[in-house]
């Protein structure tokens, strides 16, 4: 199904530009053309289709659904909704407060917020397209697990103590009201296909408009790695999954902030260069999930202690994931 993009890149790079397949520039350019063309076709098609299906889902409904769920189901659902709900990180503060004031425990809210940048339909699409469904499955399961476990841990240490005081009060009020809560359950309006199409078209325009530059940056980086890092260098120096390489990858990944769309092509290139799967996962998840700008925003609703705990938990989680997959990776 994807062979057509390889053919396109062959034709353009080796044919029209007559670059040699073995040359560095030829190899890098081939990677770039193949991946950008594939990604944009996939993006346009799939974002539209997925948006058609989820046209009636939004954060408000997720909140109503999560309110009053028991803990374990709550973490799982919070994380699952984080993966499928369209959500812009600039909305994380109001969403956080909306959940909190509905009395939803902070662990469930954080399961939602942590999973949200890690997994979304665009990421899944790119992973399947570039790295195959097995790897995608691993990525999705691990991403959700990070959300669930971090959420459960935050509740276990009573992280709500470290909310900013107005947020803590809102949480208390919400929990007291919950017994009699929620009034009339929202009836979901049936959306017509026309309304769904309008939503999907707007959504496609919105998302592609937001992520296209990440695609170019990501594929550009991937291509540079592909063509210009000497063959075998990565495999020779980091290929054994040396234990220190994982925390190092996480530490390098954190200050680099990228949208998940941009990181997938980099992942592809790193894996092809022989970086072990655990190290790659750790690096990429750290880049996507733990971003300084977002953490600074969260300061408005959390005290430093809570912020630092969340950050610490994420770093630890990514490091453990890296080690685990470096261990079992060769068996996959």
């Amino acid at each position: 199904m994807f062979a057509i993009f390889t053919a396109l890149a062959d034709w353009l790079v080796y044919g029209v530009l007559s670059l040699a397949p073995q040359s560095r520039l030829g190899e890098a350019l081939h990677f770039f053309v193949e991946d950008t063309s594939k990604i944009f076709v996939l993006l346009l098609l799939m974002i539209y289709v997925i948006a058609l299906l989820r046209a009636s889902l939004n954060v408000e409904k997720v909140r109503d659904y999560l309110a009053g769920k028991n803990r374990l189901t709550g973490y799982l659902l919070g994380s699952a909704f984080g993966a499928v709900t369209p959500f812009c990180s600039c909305s994380s503060i109001p969403a956080f407060l909306g959940f909190t004031s509905a009395g939803i425990p902070i662990g469930i809210t954080m399961a939602f917020l942590i999973t949200s940048p890690l997994i979304n339909e665009v990421a899944v699409l790119l992973l399947v397209g570039l790295l195959g469904w097995q790897f995608t499955l691993i990525y999705v399961v691990v991403g959700m697990l990070v959300g669930v476990v971090s959420g459960a841990f935050l509740d276990a240490i009573h992280a709500e103590r470290w909310l900013q005081s107005f947020a803590a009060k809102a949480l208390q009020r919400g929990q007291q009201q919950q017994v009699s809560c929620c009034g009339t359950p929202q009836t979901l309006p049936q959306l017509s296909w026309q309304a769904r199409h309008d939503f999907a078209a707007a959504e496609t325009k919105e998302i592609v408009g937001r992520v296209w530059k990440w695609v170019f940056i990501g594929v550009g980086l991937g291509a540079a790695l592909h063509g210009f890092v000497p063959e075998g260098w990565v495999a020779d120096h980091l290929g054994q999954g040396q234990w220190w390489s994982v925390p190092l990858a996480v530490l390098i990944g954190v200050p680099l902030y990228s949208n998940v769309t941009g990181i997938v092509p980099v992942m592809e290139s790193l894996l092809q260069n022989g970086l072990p799967v655990g190290t790659t996962l750790a690096f990429c998840m750290a880049t996507v999930a733990a971003s300084f700008p977002e953490f600074v925003l969260l300061k408005q609703v959390m005290q430093w202690r809570l912020l630092a705990s969340v950050f610490g938990i994420l770093l630890l989680a990514f490091t453990l994931i890296g080690w685990l997959f470096n261990l079992i990776g060769p068996m996959l």
Partner: peptide, 11 residues
């Protein structure tokens, strides 16, 4: 954020 919360707005 406190004022925004007061309006019940989540996105």
């Amino acid at each position: 954020p406190e004022v925004i919360m007061g309006y019940g707005v989540m996105s």
